[in-house]
Amino acid sequence: MSLSRDEVEKIAHLARLAVRPEDLEGYARELSGILAFVEQMDAADTEGVTPMAHPVEASQRLRPDEPDEPDRRDRFQAIAPSVEAGLYLVPRVIE
């Protein structure tokens, strides 16, 4: 699988990464190299194999539905780039 410059631009957009135009070519080459490498997987016959999502076949634990986290909003907002009156500020989204 070889990726074009345009495809990399599209993937970068999906991943919300601003890639500089001059870096697109390099990424296209490197990502194509990685994808070509992982295509070695095609050699394996995986017909009928159950995919393994997780090394330990344990089920999710249940717990009583009781709040157990203290309110730490002030601490968490203290490290935010921009807050006001307990709200996270971002550029205006509704004109």
């Binding site: 970068a12 957009h13 601003a18 990502l31 994808l35 550029p91 989204v93």
Partner: peptide
Amino acid sequence: DLLDLYTRSRGEGFGAEVQRRIMVGTY
């Protein structure tokens, strides 16, 4: 705008190898 905030914060905040892997994974 909000998209610019996301994409530039991530594009400037992550290094090249991290961006490569995010893109491979996204693909």
